[in-house]
Design a protein around this nucleic acid. Sequence first.
RNA 1: GGAUGGGUGGCCGAGUGGUUUAAGGCGCACGCCUGGAAAGCGUGUAAUGGUGAAAGCCAUUCGAGAGUUCGAAUCUCUCCCCAUCCGCCA
Length: 424
Amino acid sequence: MHDPRMIREQPEWLRDGLRRRGQLDELGGTVDRLERLDADRRRLIHAVEERKAARNATTQEVARRKRAGEPADDLIADGRLMGDEISAMESELATTADELEQLLLQLPNVTLPEVPEGGEEANVIVREWGAPRTMDAVRPHWEVGARLGLLDPERAAKVSGSGFVVYRGQGARLVRSLMSFFLDLHGREHGYEEVWVPSLVNRATMTGTGQLPKFEDDAYAIQGDDLFLIPTAEVPVTNLYRDELLDVAQLPMSFTAYTPCFRREAGSAGKDTRGLLRSHEFDKVELVRYVEPERSRDELETLTGHAEVALQRLGLPYRVKLLAAGDTGFSSAMTYDLEVWAPGVGSWLEVSSCSSFVDFQARRANIRYRPARGEKPRFVHTLNGSGLAFPRTIACILEHYQNADGSVTVPEVLQPYLGLARLG
RNA sequence: GGAUGGGUGGCCGAGUGGUUUAAGGCGCACGCCUGGAAAGCGUGUAAUGGUGAAAGCCAUUCGAGAGUUCGAAUCUCUCCCCAUCCGCCA
């Protein structure tokens, strides 16, 4: 969410942000409407507060006369009249403020100046690491997984439906190994505090990070309890400090968490769903940072670097893609995707998305800090990124490390966790 | 699921219709004291919105919403959340 003050102070900045996302035609009218609503709102506030100040003065005088034993009936009648005027104007104000907020919640974040304009065709590969393996004689991971008994898609469909995964035997242990490896890497080496958080969260939490109200259809809701299954650990972890005022000495704060992630994937049914490419439930280790505003740009590089180390240790060739404005998520100001080459599928798979949200989430979630004693509280900047998502990482391991005999060499860094050098 | 008790500023906590314009404490800042420090003493210390060049002024905010009233932290209603105990239970 944006600062309402920005509507009147920098409406062109907002319009330009929408233009760069390619959404000016769609949402430009909203900005016009917001400008009118903001003017109305301030006019009403002014009028209401003037009446309230007058009523307060009257009320004080009534109190004084009562104590002095003097009659006050005339003032009480005045007060009643003012009360009626105030309620009329207040209800108009409430309508205006409510509409303003609803519209404001619909506007995406404005991307940073260095983010290229346009849609996904304008994405930029900023660097590459490792040598992609050719597709010759490499089977896709679902075939490898079936042959080695790592996956059981039929029974997954039976117990849950399409879009769910059952890992078995060495496959199940591979999942557990990744969880330990990623948490150890970020917790012990990169200095993140490891946290273990609920997978069910309330409505306020989902609103704080921007999943609600706009994307309610994408989330699984729990019948009868107004709770939601988290789509990512970003949601509970970023909301740990919702409605808190932090001391500047606490910053930066960084957390890493493993959680399952649940996504309805409404609207993407049938797209890239083979094997482990896209499912309704998957596992992920997430990185979340709370930082001072001045540092958030640098911190995005730091966080992205931490996610990259995970891929480097696994020896998987990847590329870093800076998303163009139109491809950047609703809440994000700048996003790098990490994509790993999957030689069996023959495409780059997104295994991490690292974003700076600047103050967009902190404003919604009301996470502030005091820069120095006596100074006004400011919103922190929040960042997060996957470090990493498991299923596509597993897909790439099964393809990149595939041997001619159908077995798969376990990346060296995972061998102590898995207790195996080879799958199959 | 049942019972009881709660939700007040950065934190703790008093407060049952009008000097609450939210007491007091902790923490913090500054000053006094001191060789220096601690202790002690004194002073100050909420957020948000509106307005203003600024100082300031005005308004709002005591879990949320609605109501009663000239006036609500305080009374009424609805809802949410938390704690403890009981029940159930991995």
